[in-house]
């Protein structure tokens, strides 16, 4: 047999095609992070507010109506808003290196020498963030509502708040999607996870500070849409039917977040390539 015949050959067998190739990447990412002790500690810490809320639920049932312990839609919105601190930290811990480390190790070439597309790769990485960000938001949010229903002896609570699970689902998904997609896009910008982490943090903090200054200069909260966090709060207020905290229009907040996510997807599309072409 000539020597060149022994070199790389195209697979001539049957291609097994299935839509869940991204799951392999997600599963691997979850396994790697799940083995890190510090990360587990962080996840456990993120569950503490849930336990506090459970106690609040219990006390409100036992003690009756107390102003601070009113269980309504806002109770669930407040819980999810509080969890944003952990979402932020977990997104950086789990997400900053997701693509940056692959870029550093030139691992994209290896990924794309396998039968996966760029979309599979991005979906797989997003899956890791979705999983770990759902744990402190969506999962305890739903559990909390379930507990609230169980603790009540009659159906009045459920009758009044039947729509809240949909709000919890919608708000959680919005938070998870925003943090995941933006973090992943920032991670694709550099080979350094440190750089990615800091740029992501700066985006959130700086936009808030930008708003604070503008609100002083313009003496108005109409400019709340410049802050990423404020946009999430605005939409959260709408979803939980709470009076909005800022004067900026809801559609503007939705548009800003939509554009941010579109921009992130565009960035991912351009940065996630098997070979980086240096001009």
């Amino acid at each position: 047999m000539p020597i060149y015949d022994l070199s790389y050959r195209q697979w001539s067998g049957v291609w097994t095609s299935h839509p869940y190739r991204w799951w392999v990447i997600t599963r691997q990412g979850i396994n790697i992070l799940g083995r890190k002790r510090r990360f587990l500690v962080l996840m456990i810490l993120s569950a503490l507010p849930f336990l506090v809320r459970c106690v609040m639920l219990y006390l409100s049932t036992v003690l009756g109506r107390i102003p601070l312990l009113t269980i309504n839609a806002k109770f669930f919105e407040d819980f999810l808003s509080q969890q944003m601190f952990f979402v932020f930290i977990i997104a950086i811990y789990a997400g900053a290196g997701l693509i940056a480390n692959d870029l550093k190790a030139n691992a994209l070439q290896i990924y794309f020498s396998k039968p996966i597309t760029r979309r599979d790769y991005v979906m797989g990485k997003l899956g890791v963030l979705f999983f770990f960000l759902a744990l402190p938001t969506l999962v305890p949010g739903m559990l909390l509502f379930f507990l609230a229903v169980l603790f009540k002896s009659d159906a009045s609570f459920l009758e009044q708040n039947y729509w809240v699970p949909a709000s919890v689902l919608g708000y959680s998904l919005l938070i998870i999607a925003t943090y995941s997609v933006v973090m992943l896009a920032v991670s694709s910008l550099s080979k350094s996870s440190r750089f990615a982490g800091i740029v992501f943090a700066a985006l959130f903090f700086f936009s808030r500070i930008f708003y604070q200054i503008l609100s002083v200069v313009l003496r108005s909260t109409r400019v709340a849409w410049v802050s990423l966090g404020n946009n999430l709060t605005q939409i959260g207020d709408y979803l939980f039917q709470v009076s909005p905290q800022y004067q900026s229009p809801l559609w503007l907040s939705a548009m800003v977040l939509g554009l941010l996510m579109l921009g992130s997807v565009w960035l991912l599309h351009h940065r996630v390539q098997a070979v980086e072409v240096v001009k």
Binding site: I198, A201, A202, F205, F206, I209, Q212, I213, V216, V217
Partner: peptide, 18 residues
């Protein structure tokens, strides 16, 4: 007023730290 807001919010609590 504007300068003090810029200093306290943007410079000291953000730029310096970052």
């Amino acid at each position: 007023q504007v300068f003090s807001t810029l200093m306290s919010t943007a410079v000291i609590h953000f730029m310096v730290v970052f």
